[in-house]
Computed example of a mutant assay.
Amino acid sequence: MSFDPVEFLEAAVQTPSHEDVTEMRDLLVETLESADADCGVEVDDAGNTVAVRDSGREGPHVVLNTHIDTVPPHVEFERVSGGGGADGGGDIVRGRGSCDAKGPLAALLAAFLGTAPEHGRVTLAVTPDEETNSTGAAALDFDPAPDAVVVGEPTELDVCNAAKGRFQATVTVRGANAHAAEPQSGVNAVRAAGDLLAALDDFGEREDTPDPSAQLGAPTLTPTTIEGGTATNQVPAECSFVVDRRSVPPETAEGFRSALAEHLRERAPAAVGVEVALAERDTPFLAAFETPEDDPVVRALREASGGAVRPFGAATEASYFAQVAPTVVFGPGSLADDEGAVAHSPREYVRLAEVERAGEAVEATLATLLC
């Protein structure tokens, strides 16, 4: 059975996966089994769909990875001829997940099913839960370990060999309640939190701050939510705010937490308590990664796609794979265009020509690496 990535994409976008991925995973498994009964497709205990095409000869192991979950709410499927996007060119598919990441999935499927490796093996590993806690990716354990990994995400056919990590922490500020008519008798946690929010501005000036990366630049620190107080006529005893950290190598989540706690403690009055806690997760945070531009998988995919080599704009599960093998992020679609957000937005779309070209580029890369 021949595989048509556009036909699969249209079916996939019309298959909801923003609340439960079961129906979408069933479509994926049925597609793989119909196209290649010998690829040994399995669904593991973490819900990952894994299939293998093995040459039976020694050689490299290349992993193709992307995800099937999408963010709510569902956006209706639509195929538009000769339109879409900022420049209005080419047929597109609209719908939730078309760009992130069912377009990349269709491309990787085409490459996987179109490859008959001469040496080594290619593994397709498609995860659930990428948009939340990455439980699928964290559970993947390849044997043998991969020699290269291609992660499908919307990159406009550029080869993304680096990405910042993402850590999240909550800063809790504690004072003492008092009547608002006698504010001097209490310790105002909301007022103290305001000073500590301002202190975030010079966190990057600490001596232990990671040097800017040549590819990724400097890390960023952004407050995102805040809450505090329980009554309008009371000095608040507690206030908390959440910060988003986009990291660069070699910063770790715990290293960031410890440094921020020390920095804020130094800025807080003695009567104010300050605690910094990382968000609770059952899986590791997504750390920053960088793959050298001269690595074989980067070179092969750049030559096959014609795309630029650059960092990816968001944190990604590529972080997990980059700890064991050279890893790149690649695929059709864009996170945003000249009109605004594309991925995770009501106008999400992907160009069909890009989906087909992405599949061809990954297939050519596999041919180079597994010849």
Rank of each mutant, 00 (worst) to 15 (best):
A270K: 13
R57V: 06
T209W: 01
C39K: 05
D201T: 09
H61Y: 02
A300E: 12
E153N: 10
A139E: 02
D129N: 14
D26I: 02
D26L: 06
G89C: 13
G165W: 03
R245L: 02
G340S: 08
E153T: 08
T316A: 13
V29T: 09
P332R: 05
A169K: 03
A318F: 08
T115R: 10
D87G: 04
Y349N: 07
L109V: 00
R25G: 07
F203R: 07
E30K: 12
A35F: 01
G136C: 06
S240G: 03
V52M: 03
Y349T: 04
D69V: 06
V62F: 10
L260P: 01
T70H: 06
G331H: 11
D36W: 04
E293N: 12
R245N: 01
V71H: 03
G59D: 11
E207D: 15
A106H: 00
N133P: 00
P73E: 09
A261N: 05
A139Y: 03
A322Q: 07
G340P: 09
R79V: 08
R206I: 00
D54E: 07
V342N: 15
G84R: 11
V149N: 11
Q215E: 15
A322Y: 10
H67D: 07
L200C: 08
G95P: 10
I68H: 10
H74Q: 13
A51H: 13
D195P: 01
E280C: 02
M1H: 14
L9G: 00
P16L: 04
T224C: 07
E254M: 05
A11I: 02
G306D: 04
E266F: 00
L335G: 12
A271V: 06
E153I: 13
T132F: 13
H67K: 10
S247E: 06
V329Q: 11
A181L: 12
A277L: 13
H119F: 14
L264K: 02
G136E: 05
E290K: 08
G82N: 09
A314S: 10
V243T: 10
S319P: 08
K102C: 00
G152I: 03
P296S: 11
T365V: 07
D295P: 01
P269Q: 05
V151M: 14
E293H: 13
R357L: 08
G255V: 10
P249N: 03
S319I: 01
G229Q: 06
V63W: 08
R57A: 15
A46Y: 11
V126G: 00
H263P: 02
T232Y: 11
A259Y: 04
A308D: 14
V248W: 10
E363G: 13
A189M: 07
E360N: 02
G359N: 01
G331M: 13
A192N: 09
F289W: 15
V248I: 09
A139P: 03
V62P: 12
F142E: 13
R166C: 14
D129F: 06
K102P: 00
G175R: 05
R94K: 15
G97I: 03
E303F: 04
V342H: 11
V355L: 00
A304L: 09
Q14D: 11
T368E: 15
V190C: 12
R347P: 02
N161W: 05
A341L: 15
A304K: 12
V21M: 05
F8C: 00
R57Y: 11
E356Y: 02
E33P: 01
